[in-house]
């Protein structure tokens, strides 16, 4: 564009405030943290340089691998759960449906609720003895389907993932609603007039139009899932016996409970690298589809 060459200084003026704050208070701290990963440090005594020993130990650490696996569950559940559900609700709630404002607000609420409350209520739902799910299953005679949802290694991760899906649908709902504002109104109205088949048709037209936003959401999902912490920390703290451990929780516990600061930093490097890897794969795959 012809504006640009004349305005080089303006471009840098526009970007540099963000660049400076971000570099100083985000990238430098993370750089220092990554540097700790090459050290043997308990957080109190003087650190000693040990090269790649932390990473070598990490590669052999079974708990780390199982927490990585759990992260992948969270990731799959988020990408395949949150995004389609949020898209569906966004399409429904973007219309002139009566009460749409109410439903939009309610749809967004879980994002805003304290994780403490989410944990308390979902624990009540999942509780094996008095929980809602098992009570309902027993009421309709499906006793054999009742499980110890959060306590059984087979089901715990699934139960946690379901709660995470529920918690963050609202976030993507907001993002998709914003994206739909760029879609011409006529296209969206067609969905209302034609009913179900029209809806399906519209979705086919709309999805390519907001494909960029879907890609953004997938990337947000990946980065969010790999550093997911708060909810699991309150809900299960990675337990029972590491069954629902994810990398960020394992990192936190190693750093601040086991006094293995260097090792904890190595785990955060791993989180960064895995995220980067997955995001570049995902954006390549999804961009290809766009073209």
């Amino acid at each position: 564009m012809h504006l640009l060459n004349r305005n080089k200084w303006l471009i840098w003026l526009g970007i540099s405030p963000s660049l400076i704050v971000y570099t100083l208070f985000c990238m430098i701290p993370i750089g220092i943290s990554f540097y700790y990963s090459f050290q043997n440090w308990d957080g109190f005594s003087d650190p000693s340089f040990i090269g790649l020993d932390n990473f070598a130990a990490l590669m052999k650490d079974q708990v780390f691998w199982s927490s990585l696996k759990n992260n992948m569950f969270v990731l799959l559940a988020s990408v395949l759960g949150q995004i389609p559900i949020a898209l569906l609700f966004a399409l429904l709630l973007n219309s002139k449906l009566r009460g749409a404002k109410f439903f939009r607000t309610v749809g967004f609420l879980p994002v805003a609720i304290s994780t403490v409350i989410i944990s308390l209520t979902w624990n009540m739902i999942y509780n094996t003895q008095y929980g809602l799910i098992n009570t309902l299953l027993k009421a309709v005679g499906l006793d054999h389907l009742a499980h110890n949802w959060l306590g059984d290694p087979k089901w715990a991760m699934l139960a946690v993932c379901l709660t995470i899906i529920w918690q963050y649908v609202g976030l993507y709902l907001v993002i998709f609603l914003a994206a739909l504002q760029n879609v011409p109104a006529e296209t969206l109205e067609a969905a209302e007039i034609d009913g179900a088949t029209g809806f399906v048709k519209t979705v086919k037209i709309i999805i390519p139009m907001i494909w960029g936003t879907i890609l953004v959401s997938v990337i947000l999902c990946i980065s969010g899932s790999l550093k997911t912490f708060d909810l699991i920390y309150v809900m299960t703290n990675g337990g029972p016996a590491h069954t629902t451990d994810v990398m960020a929780i394992y990192m936190f516990n190693k750093t601040f409970s086991s006094f293995q600061y260097g090792y904890g930093s190595a785990i955060s490097v791993a989180i960064f690298v895995v995220s980067l890897l997955l995001i570049s794969v995902a954006s390549r795959l999804l961009k290809a589809k766009e073209d």
Partner: peptide, 20 residues
Amino acid sequence: YFVFGMLIPIHATLVPLFIL
């Protein structure tokens, strides 16, 4: 470079940020 910031678990930065 900006997007990298989304991949960082914030708990890793607590101590360096505190010192800074």
